[in-house]
Amino acid sequence: MGLPNALLNIDRKFIFAGVALSIAIPLLNPIGFGTSVTRQVQNVYDFVEKLEEGSTVILSFDYEPSTMAELDPMARTLLKHLFRKKARVLGMALLAGAPGIAESILQEEADAAEKEYGIEWVFLGYVPAPTAAMLRIGEDISMVYPTDQYGTLITEFPLMRSVKNYRDIDLVISLSSTAMPQFWAQYAHDRYGAPVAVGATAVEAIRMYPYHDSGQIVGFLGGLKGAAEYETLVGQPGEGIKGMDAQTIAHLFMVLMIVIGNVGHVIERRRGKSS
């Protein structure tokens, strides 16, 4: 068992322990890394910043608990900004596991900003068949959501009396762990002209670059880093900024493991050639 073998055969349980520690230690002892802001996040912020008082924004929770660690911080920081700008928020959900997450976050942020249900925000809830729902909102939102999530007819809410379709919507924000933002761009933006901004898990965010480049979306927040950037712009640190130290150290640990594996591989290959 020589050096290359030792480098190439690290027990996976040590790697697991390394991953856990590289996250746990920075959480216990924060370093306080700052984060720079990317163009994509800045564009979303600038768009929200320019919204006039009383603008109407759809915030669609298109994710389930599996990815809430990435998307919850985005939802919170976006809501803080929207409520501060006195925008009216229509919360909705296009995945069946999303309503439970959405109602907690919307309620908590609305309470913190002292916003009144039915006048400044409303939770329309979950509906099946996402693409059909996106298209139908373009004609008449009351046919997609005859009631809010809790069964009250939407005609009873003062907020909904002035909203018929995308023409009355100033921005659609999709928070998603799936391909849903691509469909929002396809149907809400390209067909009906509604501006679309995206908050996506890092896995999905990488697919947003072509849509941003073509102007089909206003901008996007990608993963926890995106949330941290937006929190920086809003000036209210949250879970995004708190998680950045752990994210950084864990990435460094991952790179270290990749380097160790490759060094072992190169040494082994050279020895193989010389023998």
């Binding site: 996250i23 599996s66 990815t67 660690a69 990488i206 994210q247």
Partner: peptide
Amino acid sequence: GASFGYTVMSRITLLIGRLQFLM
């Protein structure tokens, strides 16, 4: 490669969320 980098980022965040809860 870029997708891989973003995937790592995503997975690490999910674990950060759970450890934040436990700790």
